[in-house]
């Protein structure tokens, strides 16, 4: 199947009512999605559009809201689809992608401990890189107090 970035976006638009989207270059497309649709979208992408490889999950802190950023791509073509989902800082919960992409597990653990986005359905949401006593400080948030730390 010959997927192009634009085609993918159009399909997403039809099926999931995605509104905000753009084509940045032939190989990079971008879309903002509703956080409760992420699992359905991932299932659709991997089953029907051959987007079978999750490249990374990042989180970002935008003041009042946190954003989960997914880079989904494929082994057969070079299109990287960036999906952004906004979650409120007071209750940052989003569905985990582990049922669709096995390798989401560690990316989600990392985003959880560094930014505090909690992934519902992740089998083991334990700290990965931080020592246990630093859990809950969320160092990558912009209002984190412990940086710089000249001790």
């Amino acid at each position: 199947m010959n997927t192009t970035g634009e085609l993918t976006l159009n399909m997403l638009k039809e099926k999931f009512q995605v509104t905000e989207m753009r084509v940045e270059s032939p190989n990079r497309v971008w879309a903002r999605i509703a956080p409760d649709k992420i699992l359905a979208i991932a299932k659709f992408l991997s089953n029907e559009l051959e987007f079978d490889h999750l490249s990374s999950i990042a989180g970002a802190d935008y003041g009042e809201a946190l954003e989960a950023v997914y880079q989904i791509t494929a082994y057969s073509h070079g299109i990287v689809l960036t999906l952004k989902a906004k979650v409120p800082k007071s209750n940052p919960v989003i569905d985990s992608l582990t049922p669709v992409y096995w390798n989401a597990a560690w990316y989600e653990r990392e985003a959880y401990e560094l930014l505090g986005i909690s992934f519902r359905g992740n089998p083991n949401l334990a700290p990965l890189v931080l020592p246990a006593e630093m859990m809950g400080e969320y160092p990558l948030r912009k209002d984190y107090k412990g940086y710089p730390n000249p001790t």
């Binding site: 931080l130 630093m134 940086y147 001790t151």
Partner: peptide
Amino acid sequence: FWESYSTIIN
């Protein structure tokens, strides 16, 4: 990495 939150410098 002297100002990082997770390193020890002394």
